[in-house]
């Protein structure tokens, strides 16, 4: 019985080394390479495909839209960027800590 970390190590090394071997086999046994210009599903295509591809700031769109209410809560209620709002949360937490410490530290058992 190995420990889980070693198991992960064995599996991942197997995957990486095996993947390398497999990729080399596939790359070697194919018939050849034909290099083409960029094309769009068979249509020839100029340089516009890059401009209509989602950029890095858009790939999360599906998830962000699904979580929109939660995301906007985090962005507009918690991370407001206004230091006064932050203080109210921080001080509230400090007050809770103090109350807890006084309540629980008061009585000598």
């Amino acid at each position: 019985m190995v420990d889980p970390g070693t198991l992960g190590l064995i599996f991942s090394v197997t995957a990486l080394v095996g993947g390398l071997i497999l990729a080399v086999i596939v790359a070697v046994t194919k018939r050849g390479v034909r290099e083409t210009e960029p094309y769009l599903c068979g249509e020839s295509e100029a340089d516009f495909s890059d401009s209509i591809s989602p950029s890095a700031t858009e790939v999360q769109w599906g998830l962000e839209k699904t979580l929109s209410s939660w995301v906007s809560f985090v962005r507009t209620k918690i991370h407001t960027g206004v230091i006064d709002d932050w203080w109210s949360l921080m001080i509230a937490w400090a007050a809770i800590l103090l109350i807890v410490s006084v309540v629980r530290g008061w009585v000598w058992p």
């Binding site: 993947g19 390398l20 990729a23 790359a27 194919k30 083409t36 210009e37 960029p38």
Partner: peptide, 21 residues
Amino acid sequence: AKELVISRGFSWRVTLFLVST
């Protein structure tokens, strides 16, 4: 089949390696 390489895309060898992994 013959590999079709698009002249300015990301290296297909690396992608092949990732898929094989």
